[in-house]
Design a protein around this nucleic acid. Sequence first.
DNA 1: CTGTTAGCGCGTTCAA
DNA 2: TTGAACGCGCTAACAG
Lengths: 338, 338
Amino acid sequence: MATIYDVARHAGVSASTVSRVLNGKQTVDAQLADRVRSAATELDYRPNALARSLRRSQTHLWAVLVSDINNPFFTALVRGVEDVAQQARYSVVLCNSDESPAKEADYIAAILAEQMAGVIVSPTNQPGHLTRLVSAGVPIVAIDRRAEEVEVDTVTVDNTSAAELATAHLLEEGFTRVACITGPRGVSTAEERLAGYRRALRAAGRKPDPRLVRHTDFREQGGYAAMGELLDHTPRPDAVFATNNLLTVGALACLVDRGLRVPADVGIFGFDDVPCATLIRPPLSTITQPTYEIGRTAADLLLRRVEDPSRPPSVTVLPTELHVRASSLRSRTVTSAG
Amino acid sequence: MATIYDVARHAGVSASTVSRVLNGKQTVDAQLADRVRSAATELDYRPNALARSLRRSQTHLWAVLVSDINNPFFTALVRGVEDVAQQARYSVVLCNSDESPAKEADYIAAILAEQMAGVIVSPTNQPGHLTRLVSAGVPIVAIDRRAEEVEVDTVTVDNTSAAELATAHLLEEGFTRVACITGPRGVSTAEERLAGYRRALRAAGRKPDPRLVRHTDFREQGGYAAMGELLDHTPRPDAVFATNNLLTVGALACLVDRGLRVPADVGIFGFDDVPCATLIRPPLSTITQPTYEIGRTAADLLLRRVEDPSRPPSVTVLPTELHVRASSLRSRTVTSAG
DNA sequence: CTGTTAGCGCGTTCAA
DNA sequence: TTGAACGCGCTAACAG
């Protein structure tokens, strides 16, 4: 690999001049600049990012640290991040903590060690993890979940209201024993969506029944098991609100395996888009989030923060959409909305 | 951030001694080593990976460069890579070329600039792309698709035979106008699976009809459009073999939208696991690949190549599984296999 | 406007 | 066994 000195020699100038030209400093004679540029292309010169970063103590790498790489919600979001990043000449790398605090810690160490220029993260809220990044001055934007301990830019949706709407819809449809399968305690999305579920029940004059609530990990397997438990106990639910796409799929799979009909035996309402939603019968009622926009917005915030690290942290709440389809309709014709 | 000099001062030794201790060189007095280690933990010293990499001209970052981050085949595979990488103390970052040669070029430039320690790639086979990595001496393993131009370690499956089996099954079921929806020309998986389809037809004494073959991009939208075209032309297929999961989903969505029954009107056989496969009715017949194993194997090969760059490139062919389900069964009861 | 000099933080010679 | 000196490739002071 050619270094900046090779280019300098080739163009008959000093290394600093090469550096200036290649970094677009306007204080170089036009003719010299041309010589430098042609020397650079001739030698196929590519600046050593390591050396540059060491000098500037900053890279042009952004990390997107997600809790589950197999969740299409997160991968869809990456697209939005990439589009913004590319325009600002950053590269985006995806890191998968796999819901494991240890892996998250490893990646945070790597992000720190590699001095990455910014991080977009769906926090697992392990004590100290994000603090480490913040105190190192790494620009951070939290997505999906709220970060605890630290105040950072956040892009999220109104989980509580969306969950309330979905649950209210089930109640209005005439379901009387509406269960909720939600994620781990302490994860803000799991808590907020559960809170919305409870609020809807209270608003309808019902008392939330703790026996109808299950906490589990945000995985298909978790949804499957939780649904099974709910069906095996009293009161047996006649509808279920699942607070994430994987939970929805798992719950549905459980219902199918037990030969229960949806929505005749059990109604179901899901959160997030489900892969192949159009192919699943009956069509699933879901709350959807603007995944691409979440990614874009987070990336925009990251850019602004890189420019001005002192700006006060902001919280952006993006709108959700309620899609009522057949899976949540009691004894009515199938309609479609949203 | 504390530097190696801070630690040295704190421990009353020189920076070189600190370096030696922290890199496990055995030539340091035990007592001194202890002092160094406690000084390091006390200052929460974390080596600057940039400086270290600049010096060693190598990072501890692996890149997995895939053509579609939304394809679960690729994200599932990453898990296998991660497990191997973690044990060898590498971090894995995922880069999404999004089937765009320009983006792939950008990421390759970044990989080169950041001097990443290794790359696992599903090549788009753009002229020069991989060559650039190879000539820079970056260890590479190709997955899914074969790399052209360059000879590199490759992990793949026997696409031709698997496709032949699937197509033969459709023919044996009595389908007479079996179509094939495959990926872009020049992509080895698309070509090989198409070749297997043709081989099965010939083996059954049929002449492959070019009007029943469609090339498109490996996207759901592509599968949808291709299926639509096939249905709008003569001869109208009574079965379709789709050579990738997204194509399968797209084709199926098209059939559903047109009110066609599967498999009564049109039979379907897919390649790769389809998300939510268990929830789709009728259950889909598919060829599945050992995604996790592909990731593990590729990572193992990468490790070996890092250790011994001179080792001759190898090709690992992993087994596929044929899962015959209802979508490909003509006038028979629904059974399940595999 | 240009070149010389210095140093980012580390690992690795070379002497001692 | 240890420390001093050097350089990885680059950018940012400082002079000229």
